[in-house]
Amino acid sequence: MPPKRGRPRRQVQVEAAAARAHIDPELIAKRTKRHLDELERSNYTESSTLFASADDEDQDRGPAARGRARQTISDKREHGRKKKSTMNIRTAVLYRKNLATLIDESGIAALPGPTYLTAAVPPPNEPPRLICSVCGYWGKYKCKKCAMPYCDLNCEAVHDETRCERRVL
């Protein structure tokens, strides 16, 4: 009985090790991009509080106020002036667009000269430095499972415990 089960198990291990040795660079690129997007956030708990904070102030005004005429924050402080805004202003205030949409609509992609899209600094020539993802020292080694750099056994242990993505292969 034991010898029968032994062989396939070893085979599985060998396959897993082979798969681990090569981590898809696309996955790493995706992870990096996600991380960079996170670094652009204004608030850590963006998605949940965005609506929550808008709602908790609306509650005292009852459901009737939540009709077609949405109240905007700019309406909350009157500052002594009561003037009806023009259509352009109301459109801008009520319909918020994110930057990607605005870039799309601006049509700058088709302009011949320099634009926001062409102004970014080019990538560097030298390979990136490897920094330990745990303590910030030079990361001489890379995790076999997720390719994050670490510097020594201590940091490897912390990494395995907390940061490693534990991709099951």
């Binding site: 924050i73 700019s74 909350k76 402080r77 205030v93 009520l94 918020r96 994110n98």
Partner: peptide, 8 residues
């Protein structure tokens, strides 16, 4: 991008 906040 957020003209509502900016106007406020």
């Amino acid at each position: 991008v957020d003209w509502d906040a900016q106007k406020a």
